[in-house]
Design a binder for these strands. Structure first.
Length: 716
DNA sequence: GAGCACTGC
């Protein structure tokens, strides 16, 4: 963790004055930081931008990077936090002439990171954003023909590969944060490997963490061609990829383990925070737990202790929860500087590991677990499961304590347990539904997906399940080829395959406008504002019921959207009705984007402007529900005499999610659902009541009429 | 009676 060479430069905060006062100063200093890799802490702000650039640890590697990139086609750069690699490397490349033959592209897994880093680099170059330095994220293209340094999300890169399979606009591509192994990064790496063979002039920089650097170098090394296909390029023995390790600018973090395992990591973290508050000098604490329930529980326990602790230590304890579902205003509390003689304790989910950086953290308490999504290809069900973190994750969490001064990390497990942890987390590619990935690969011309060179090959069962679903939806034919135009159009829409199928079939049911709205609304996580307790909770529930209809959640979402448009997209109206204003605005954006796609695809577009109306009186609801079934027929369930639901496909037991409008109603005999999420039980989320005969009318290839007048799956 | 985190020409 500790930088060796860089430390001579390094002035610790507080070296030249009293600890207390400088310490506050530096926190406010870094308040602009909002991403993992941008500037966390800048003690050099009184220097010119050029001087600041030269003081970054990466600067001493400038020539090595340029040399290695001339000699190798792929360079894996292992850079620690705060090295400055994300902002500096693109500029080194620009300064040494790499933009004469093409752009420099840098991918980020998150949009905020792409935007904020582009802003910083533009500032360093003294140019307005969108000219020499620009960015592209979904819904937001801030580039021009002059743009030489282009920051994009990795999802955009994959989309760009569809339009331009050889990525001719770029001379150098840098995949930043590749160790996070997002689906899009993995697809991009698999495709880049192919592109590199055809474009010997293209250079690739992979920025990653220590643990998987060698695997990635070997993945991109073409000297020992490990595939059966003949490779004409580079048949000599020289490796084409290499690793460069770059030190970062972080402070040492002392790591403490438990002597013995504990039965309950939530109470153990609470006890540890109490001990820190009693024994350690002031400095904020960041606690990592797995979910909302645990965070709230821990906050409650600490609040119980806080009065006694204040009496004992004369320092206050300020406990702040932090998780994604928290309203933005509440999230901000985690970033606020605590008042004097107060220790802030932020109790967070995994959101604080990479997505959000909180300044001023000195102590980290790591429960050692994380909640992840895992996909079961047999049932097609996603589950949320709690698993131990990886070593890489544990290091990342501990590192959060060493950004302003040397810190301490307390792990709620033994050192032996640490040694047992996996090196890195399972890449997303190996634990999610593959249908969307396979559809994209097919659209990119990769027909034999089983032989595609994934950096982390997914299990074969997942591939088979994904192909079956795509076939059922009509996106691929008997030979596994993408159908035209349906399959191609499905791949081009930024929607899940089932939702894309629903939208593309909407013309048949004369409900394109409504299908667009439903597809857009399903992209939002939180439509309803849900106050925790008290009178407001009752009011929120009452407000929600105004929009609810017996047909289910899809039509309810449609009602909300049309009412939102009818009231003039008023934020006040949203507050009165306990709806997320920003979310609904986002739905408007997404809907526009989807509509543009349909127009481009020349999907017959009914221009009868939908008159927004409550109660859905103007819609032909049955046609809309048929349209939903045409996309979601594979997600059908019936009410079993036991009172629970069973999937039509394989009698898998399911429940209506409590957040569904159908939860409190008389359960309809037949439903389709958007997705299943397993927590304590398997819950259908976003449910719509249907007529059983629609299934065999609309998906005869998938269902047939059974002898007892029931729909049966031909396979069962 | 329930909600890890991201993202898309």
């Amino acid at each position: 963790m500790q930088p060796a060479g860089g430390r001579a430069f390094f002035r610790k905060p507080g070296d030249d004055s009293a600890q207390g006062s400088t310490w506050k100063e530096e926190r406010s200093d870094a308040s602009a930081d909002s991403s993992a890799t941008s500037f966390v802490y800048n003690p050099w702000k009184h220097y010119s931008l050029d001087q600041q650039r030269q003081r970054l640890p990466i600067y001493q590697y400038r020539n090595s990077i340029l040399y290695l990139l001339a000699k190798f086609q792929t360079v894996v750069i292992v850079g620690e936090t705060g090295s400055g690699k994300t902002t500096q490397i693109p500029q080194y490349l620009l300064e040494s002439g790499w933009t004469k033959t093409g752009r420099i592209g840098i991918t980020q897994p998150r949009r905020v990171a792409a935007i904020t880093v582009a802003q910083r680099v533009a500032e360093e170059r003294g140019a307005p954003l969108g000219r020499e330095v620009g960015y592209v994220v979904r819904f937001d293209d801030c580039t021009s023909s002059e743009t030489n340094i282009k920051f994009i999300t990795d999802g955009i890169l994959v989309r760009e590969m569809m339009a331009d399979p050889l990525l001719k606009q770029y001379s150098v591509l840098m995949l930043d944060e590749a160790h996070e192994r997002s689906i899009a990064t993995d697809i991009a790496m698999g495709l880049l490997k192919k592109i590199l063979r055809k474009r010997p002039d293209l250079k690739v920089i992979i920025s990653s963490a220590t643990l998987d650097a060698e695997a990635l170098r070997d993945f991109f090394d073409m000297s020992h061609s490990n595939t059966s296909t003949t490779i004409t390029k580079n048949n000599n023995e020289e490796p084409t990829s290499t690793i460069l390790t770059v030190e970062g600018r972080t402070f040492p973090v002392d790591v403490y383990y438990l002597k013995d395992p504990v039965p309950n990591y939530v109470t153990a973290t609470v006890d540890t925070v109490v001990k820190i508050h009693k024994a350690e000098p002031l400095g904020d604490v960041l606690v990592f737990l797995t979910g909302v329930e645990e965070v709230d529980h821990a906050c409650g326990l600490l609040d119980e202790h806080s009065d006694a602790l204040e009496a004992e230590t004369h320092n206050k304890l300020l406990v702040v929860p932090l998780y994604g579902a928290l309203p933005p205003g509440d999230q901000l509390k985690a970033f606020e500087m605590p008042p004097a003689r107060t220790r802030k304790v932020v109790i967070a989910t995994n959101i604080a590991e990479t997505s959000i950086t909180i300044n001023g953290i000195v102590y980290v308490v790591d429960a050692g677990f994380v909640k992840i999504k895992a996909f079961n290809p047999e049932s097609g069900v996603d589950s949320l499961i709690i698993v131990p973190t990886s070593k890489a994750s544990a290091e990342q969490r501990a590192g959060r304590a060493g950004r302003v001064r040397s810190g301490k990390a307390y792990r709620m497990y033994t050192e032996e347990a640490y040694k047992e942890l996996e090196d890195a987390s399972v890449p997303e590619m190996q634990r999610t539904s593959l249908a969307p990935v396979l559809l994209q690969l097919k659209a990119l011309g990769i027909d034999n997906v089983l032989r595609f060179n994934f950096p982390a090959p997914p299990p074969a069962t997942h591939v088979v399940q994904g192909l079956e679903l795509l076939y059922g939806l009509g996106a691929i034919d008997d030979n596994g080829k993408l159908t035209e135009p349906l399959g191609l159009h499905m791949a081009e829409l930024p929607l899940s395959p089932m939702l894309a199928r629903m939208l593309l079939g909407a013309a048949e049911f004369h409900c394109i406008e409504e299908a667009l709205t439903i597809a857009a609304m399903l992209q939002l996580e939180n439509v309803f504002v849900r106050p925790g307790r008290g009178e407001q909770k009752v009011n929120a529930e009452r407000a929600r019921r105004k929009f609810s209809v017996l047909e289910g959640d899809h039509i309810t979402l449609l009602n909300i959207y049309t009412a939102f448009v009818k009231c003039g997209k008023s934020s006040q109206w949203c507050r009165q009705n306990f709806l997320h204003y920003k979310g609904l605005c986002r739905a408007v954006d997404i809907r526009k984007q989807l509509e543009k796609h349909l127009i481009r695809m020349k999907i017959p577009h009914t221009n009868n402007n939908l008159e927004p109306q409550m109660e859905g009186a103007l819609y032909d609801i049955d046609n809309i529900r048929r349209c939903i079934v045409a996309g979601f027929f594979a997600n059908a369930a019936y009410l079993h005499p036991s009172g629970t639901y069973r999937t039509v496909r394989n009698d898998h037991e399911l429940h209506i999610h409590p957040a569904s409008v159908l939860y409190a109603e008389k359960p309809p005999p037949w439903v389709v659902f958007n997705e299943v999420l397993q927590t304590n039980q398997e819950f259908m989320r976003d449910v719509t009541a249907i007529e059983s005969h629609w299934l065999y009318e609309l998906a005869p290839h998938y269902y047939q009429y059974g002898t007892e007048g029931e729909v049966r799956n031909p396979r069962s």
